[in-house]
C-alpha cells in the first residue's frame, strides 16, 4: 500500500509539472499556432533568477533568500515580463506566418536564451538549495509522502481550477477561447489581437515560473538547459492530448508523467536508465493508434 501510494504520488507530481508545462505550450498553440520551444528556457530563467548573476559555479542565492511570497511574486514577474518581451521582439513581427516558421523562430529564440545564460552564468551546473523544508516527509493517513510532492499536486490543482475559472468566467478568458477557435471572427467583434496574445503569453509565462520554482526545489541543480526535458515531455504531451486542446494538454501531461513512473517501477534495474526511451516509444505507439491525439481539435484540421 505504502509503495503504491508512493508511486501514485510520484506519478501525480511529475505529471503535474508536465501538465503545467504542456498547458503553457498548448495555450499559445491554440491561439497563434506557435509551438513554443523557448517555453523551456523561460522555466530555466525562472530558476537562474533566484541566484546572483555570475559565472562562478558556486551559486549565491539572491531572490531565493527573500520571504517565500516575495520570491514567488518576483520570479513570476520576471518570467512573465520575459515571456511578453519574447512575444514583442520575436513573435509579434512574425504573426500570421505558418506554424513551421513560428516553431523554427521559437527554436532560434531558445538557442539565443540558452547561450545568453551561458554567457552570464557559465555552462557548469550550479547547486541551488531553495526552500529545503519542502524536502521533508510528512505522514498522511499513515503513508509518508514528501512535502514537495503534496505542494506540487495541490498547486497544480489550484492552478488548473484557476485557469478553468479564468477561461470560463472572465471576459479575457472568453475572448481567448473565441480567438483560439477563430481569431479573425473574434477580431471582427472587436476583440483586440494584441491584448489576447499578450494575455496568453503572460499566462504561459506565469505557468513557466511556477514550474520553474517547483522543479528547482526537486532538482537542486540548475543548468542552462534545465527546462529542456520538461519542454520535450510537454511537447509530446500536447501531441498526445491533441494539438490545441487545453484539456488534452493536461491529460497528455499526466499520461506522460504516469508512463514515466510506470516504466521506472516495472523496468529491471539494468534498463532503468533507458526509461525515457520507453516513455517516448510508448508515446509513439499511442500516436500510431490515435494520430490526431486524444482530443481532436476541429479548427486545427484542414478543410477541403
Amino acid at each position: 500500500m505504502q509503495g503504491f501510494i508512493q508511486h501514485l504520488a510520484d506519478a501525480l507530481s511529475l505529471g503535474s509539472l508536465f501538465a503545467l508545462t504542456a498547458l503553457g505550450i498548448s495555450l499559445l498553440f491554440g491561439i497563434m499556432r506557435l509551438v513554443n520551444f523557448a517555453h523551456g528556457d523561460l522555466i530555466t530563467i525562472g530558476a537562474y533568477a533566484l541566484i546572483v548573476p555570475s559565472s562562478n559555479p558556486n551559486a549565491v542565492m539572491f531572490i531565493g533568500l527573500w520571504p517565500v511570497l516575495d520570491t514567488i511574486i518576483a520570479i513570476c514577474a520576471i518570467v512573465v515580463a520575459l515571456a511578453i518581451l519574447c512575444e514583442r521582439l520575436a513573435f509579434k513581427p512574425m504573426r500570421g506566418a505558418n506554424p513551421s516558421v513560428l516553431m523554427i523562430a521559437s527554436f532560434a529564440v531558445s538557442y539565443f536564451l540558452q547561450n545568453a545564460l551561458i554567457m552570464i552564468y557559465g555552462s557548469r551546473p550550479k547547486g541551488v538549495n531553495l526552500w529545503p523544508a519542502l524536502a521533508q516527509s510528512v505522514s498522511v493517513g499513515g503513508v509518508r509522502l514528501q512535502l514537495l510532492q503534496i505542494v506540487t499536486i495541490v498547486t497544480t490543482l489550484v492552478l488548473l481550477c484557476g485557469l478553468t475559472l479564468f477561461l470560463r468566467r472572465s471576459a479575457i478568458g472568453r475572448q481567448m477561447r473565441a480567438a483560439s477557435e477563430n481569431f479573425m471572427m473574434a477580431r471582427f467583434l472587436g476583440v483586440r489581437a494584441n491584448l489576447v496574445i499578450a494575455a496568453a503569453f503572460a499566462i504561459s509565462g506565469f505557468f513557466a515560473a511556477v514550474v520553474s520554482l517547483l522543479y528547482v526545489v526537486q532538482r537542486g541543480t540548475i543548468t542552462y538547459d534545465f527546462g529542456v526535458p520538461l519542454v520535450m515531455a510537454a511537447f509530446v504531451a500536447t501531441v498526445i492530448g491533441g494539438m490545441g486542446s487545453v484539456l488534452g494538454a493536461v491529460l497528455g501531461g499526466f499520461l506522460v508523467g504516469f508512463a514515466n513512473v510506470f516504466f521506472q517501477v516495472v523496468l529491471p534495474m539494468s534498463l532503468r536508465g533507458d526509461r525515457d526511451a520507453f516513455v517516448y516509444g510508448f508515446v509513439i505507439l499511442v500516436l500510431l493508434v490515435r494520430p490526431a491525439g486524444l482530443i481532436k481539435v476541429k479548427s486545427v484540421q484542414e478543410r477541403v
Binding site: M243, G273, A277, Y280, I284, L285, P291
Partner: peptide, 28 residues
C-alpha cells in the same frame, strides 16, 4: 514509418521523441 502517419506540425514534434529515445539508449 510511425512518424509519417501523423500530420504536419505533429511530425515535427514527433521527431523530438526520436531524438530523445536514441539519445537515452546510447547514453545508457
Amino acid at each position: 514509418l510511425p512518424l509519417m502517419r501523423m500530420g504536419g506540425i505533429a511530425i515535427s514534434i514527433g521527431t523530438f521523441a526520436v531524438l530523445v529515445i536514441f539519445n537515452t539508449i546510447y547514453q545508457n
